[in-house]
Amino acid sequence: MVWITPSEWAVITLSLHVAFWAALLNLPLALAAAWVLVRRDFWGKALLSAILHLPLVLPPVVTGFGLLLIFGKTALLGQLIEGAGLPLAFHPNGAILAAMVMGFPLTLRAVRLGLEAVDPNLETAAASLGDAPWRVFARITLPLMRPSLLAGAVLGFAKSLGEFGATITFVAAIPGLTMTLPSAIYTQLQIPGGEDQVIRLVCLSIAMSFAAIITADWLSARVLRKTGVR
């Protein structure tokens, strides 16, 4: 009874797979968006910032419905992307996409704060020592942002592990394909007499969250030390 069943394993590995890729793929996107929002001035900047942060405040089911409209089986863009060999709707990739959209505002906020904290004077100093702008970015800006990049990734990962509304709306909860931990718990709750299974899944969920938090704390302490902040 203590051992994890194959179907539970499938739920756990899918949840980790979705959260890992959502967090990882969001990082470069959040970095690019943060750069534009922090370092560039242009008309419509406030509007862009609002749109990027929208999934934070919208009911997740609305975001999921929006994803269906844009990337669904019947939507033009969805068909194009599926035709290019990247199925999204009712597919793990879709779960990753939903988790990315939901986690993006959190990752962006962390990365943006990190970029704002980088002293542009240090970049000037690096330029005076002969570095072209892209080298300054690679050697000064990015390394100094390490703590915030890690924080952004951790937030995105955590958000993805718990994401439910947008995911179940966009990709449903197909066992072994799109059923993540929250949607598995929800599905079990709908079955009369499934409480034992729900308790098991809830315990797994708590254990995974603990492990994620402890790993994140350990990583950030390491990164802060390396960045010369501590």
Binding site: D119, N121, L122, A125, A127, S128, G130, T227, G228
Partner: peptide, 21 residues
């Protein structure tokens, strides 16, 4: 000519040492 092509040695008032190095 941008700063990185001028080959000047600059010491700033706040020194600007890179904290991660």
């Amino acid at each position: 000519l941008p700063p990185h092509k001028r080959n000047l040695g600059v010491v700033f008032q706040d020194y600007r040492l890179f904290p991660h190095l």
